[in-house]
Nucleic acid binder design. Structure first.
Length: 650
RNA sequence: GCCGAUGUAGCUCAACGGUAGAGCACGGCUUUCGUAAAGCCGGGGUUGAGGGUUCGAAUCCCUCCAUCGGCUCCA
């Protein structure tokens, strides 16, 4: 007999050789009916796999919020889709089909491009396979038996996958019971017991994907699907996607008149319209206030520099491909649109001798930089070719580094907290030792990586370490957020750099009267205004807190009789430093309010003859709630206070 | 850059080989109105650009541009 321990700590005795499915049956018939897989000692396995020895076991049932259960169902669904595609297009070569968040994809090699028009037929075929309720049957083969079998199938991808797999045993999953006759696929598993257990699914899209992510390799077709326990959960997901699209900064940015990108100006070139500019200006002033408090010195630099500057910094040779081509003048001079602000700031630092007594030196600039991003990468304001960073460079002694890093991290967190952005993750970007895209030696990197790691640890933040995510000159701590459709973007960043001081030969005089090399920190709490504002638009769905709102108050007159008073109210609001907009048009109050709400104006002030007589304002919020009638002075005072404190919940 | 899709009025979309339309927005008029879109009238489009097929192209084909979703990239 074996003893299995359930998640609640209770124990059960089961026969030797029993399966997880048997355990489920022993617990109850209903569980046995709905369970689709099990977690045994932390590893997800098939229900029909025999248990070996005493173990902890948890049975997985299809729940939309159980990632482990859904990963199994989604992976099984990927197999079903693969089989469906192979039925419809017999010369399909299968490559790789994992579960991903909310669904799965399968990479296939097929001469004929699949288009959305094909989805319905594929889904129909999938439904048929699900209706057949075929069992997933695992077949384990030794490598010696498996490889010739795969070779015979003539699918180089599967052979390749098998060669890369660990262990002496390769597993295949047959959809059905007859290896050789039924559909089968090299696969680690696990799977749901049978195809009938797959809930509701939908094919979402098809796109190109390079084999093994290698652009020099063949481009495959990647078919994405989504899978849920039932139709209701699928619909909820699709509805949620629709809702998310309404938050898209590209949509709201247009609706609210915040920015525009004009192809004649150039793709990836953001034009900030007045309302967007107001918003950005508030952010700039907020950050600037903090910088002054923390001893940063503002500097300004031009947007170009001689190519030689970037040869020294390493930008030019190392990131030539993602820069705008150099500007070549008739006299042979070559200039580069700056891809980063650091070289200019370094030259400012270098223009004066520095004593250890001066350090740290902190140069701040809202510096605009230009990067030639690949055309396929451009996306609204999140990925652009010209953008302005809330940048700064700190030059300090090695001893000062921990404290300075701490200050930078606190600034990033303050920025995120002030805006109410809580849904972010922290990533330690380290060097990929196998890559040659970094400057500097191993020792310097080890030192820098240890500095960021201990800074991250001391901050108390939860973070993940990721190789290959470093800047070319040093490791970094990135604050990463998701946009409305789940894509991740780096916002705030703090980077340690021993390399550029070396390349530029930076020095300060130490207390020993000898020259020493400073360390640099590159940091940007927002990252770039373009990307940050894009994320803010989506975060607030356009309903910005009062201090950021392009228009803070809309003053609406009931009729012509109150137009003059409305004008007065508007004037006083403006005098009080509030951004007010006046609507005395010959419309009824309903449509006027509607228009103001559409524009997400935080406070909608209605004034009629009553208010005019009493010197009051009737205040409504953009959600349609009436907040009451206030003396104008009181309302102004409240607004000013709300702006001053940068209150979020307006 | 690569794969696929999509470009029609300021915005959202219709028309899918036979004379380009609607709603919202905009302008004018009527209404002067008390809180989630009043009524009427009007202006507005070489259908992204350029070629081609056809008696006839928004519609079919080609090239380019842009956008969208992925891939790759992201100092």
């Amino acid at each position: 007999m074996l003893t299995v321990t359930l998640p609640d700590g209770s124990q059960l005795s089961v026969a030797e050789g029993a399966t997880a499915g048997d355990v489920a049956a022993q617990i109850g018939p209903r569980l046995a009916k709905v369970a689709i897989a099990a977690v045994v000692n932390g590893e997800t396995v098939d229900l029909n796999q025999p248990l070996h020895g005493n173990c902890g076991i948890e049975l997985l049932t299809p729940k939309a919020d159980d990632d482990r259960a859904m990963a199994v169902m989604r992976h099984s669904c990927a197999h079903v889709m693969a089989e469906a595609i192979c039925r419809l297009f017999p010369n399909t070569k299968l490559v790789y089909g994992p579960a991903v968040e909310n669904g799965f994809y399968y990479d296939i090699d097929l001469d004929r491009p699949l288009t959305p028009d094909d989805f319905e037929a594929i889904e129909k075929a999938m439904e048929a396979i699900v209706r057949e309720d075929k069992p997933f049957t695992r077949v384990d083969l030794s490598r010696a038996d498996a490889m010739p079998k795969l070779q015979a199938e003539g699918n180089r991808y599967k052979v390749d996958n098998a060669e890369r797999a660990d262990g002496d045993c390769l597993s295949f999953y047959v959809t059905g019971t007859q290896p050789g006759a039924d559909f089968e696929d090299l696969c680690r598993g696990p799977h749901v017991p049978s195809t009938g257990r797959i809930g509701a699914f939908k094919i979402m899209q098809v796109s190109g994907a390079f084999y093994r992510g290698d652009p020099s390799e063949k481009q495959l077709q990647r078919v994405y699907g989504t899978t849920w326990p039932d139709k209701k959960a699928l619909k909820a997901y699709l509805d949620q996607l629709e809702e998310a699209k309404k938050r898209d900064h590209r949509r709201i940015g247009t609706e609210l008149g915040l920015y525009v990108i004009d192809p004649q100006v150039g793709p990836g070139m953001v034009l900030w319209k007045p309302k967007g500019a107001v918003l950005r200006k508030q952010l700039e002033e907020f950050i600037l206030g903090e910088l002054v408090k923390q001893g940063y010195k503002p500097v300004y630099c031009p947007h170009v520099g001689r190519l030689d500057l970037y040869r020294t910094s390493g930008h030019y040779p190392y990131y030539k491909d993602s820069q705008f081509a150099p500007i070549r003048m008739p006299d042979g001079e070559e200039l580069l649109l700056k891809p980063m602000n650091c070289p200019h700031h370094i030259k400012i630092f270098q223009s004066d001798p520095h004593s250890y007594r001066d350090l740290p030196v902190r140069f701040a600039e809202f510096g605009t930089v230009y990067r030639y991003e690949q055309s396929g990468e451009l996306a609204g304001m999140t990925r652009v070719r010209g953008f302005t960073q809330d940048d700064a460079h700190i030059f300090c002694t090695p001893e000062q580094l921990p404290q300075e890093l701490d200050g930078c991290l606190r600034l990033v967190r303050l920025a995120l907290e002030t805006l109410g952005l809580k849904d972010y993750r922290v990533r330690l970007g380290l060097r990929d030792p196998a890559s040659d895209k970094y400057i500097g030696g191993d020792a310097v990197w080890a030192q820098a990586e240890e500095a960021v790691r201990s800074a991250a640890r001391n901050s108390g933040l939860r973070f993940s370490e990721e190789a290959g995510e470093a800047a070319f000159y040093g490791p970094k701590i990135d604050f990463v957020v998701r946009d409305c459709i789940g894509r991740e973007w780096q916002l705030g960043t703090v980077q340690v750099d021993y390399n550029l001081p070396e390349r530029f030969g930076l020095e300060y005089v130490g207390s020993d009267n000898a020259p020493h090399r400073p360390v640099m920190i590159h940091r940007a709490p927002f990252g770039s205004f373009e990307r940050f504002v894009a994320i803010l638009i989506e975060h607030f769905a356009g309903a910005f807190p009062l201090w950021l709102a392009p228009v803070q108050v809309a003053v609406l007159s009931i009729s012509e009789k109150s137009a003059e008073y409305a004008q007065q109210v508007h004037g006083q609001l403006c005098d009080a430093g509030l951004r007010s907009e006046l609507d005395v048009s010959a419309e009824k109050i309903g449509p006027k309010k509607h228009a103001a709400r559409q524009q997400k104006v935080p406070y909608i002030v209605v004034v009629g003859e009553q208010e005019a007589q009493a010197g009051t304002v009737n205040v409504n919020d953009r959600d349609g709630k009436t907040l009451g009638t206030f003396a104008l002075a009181e309302f102004i005072g409240r607004c000013q206070e709300e702006v001053r404190t940068r209150t979020l919940s307006s």
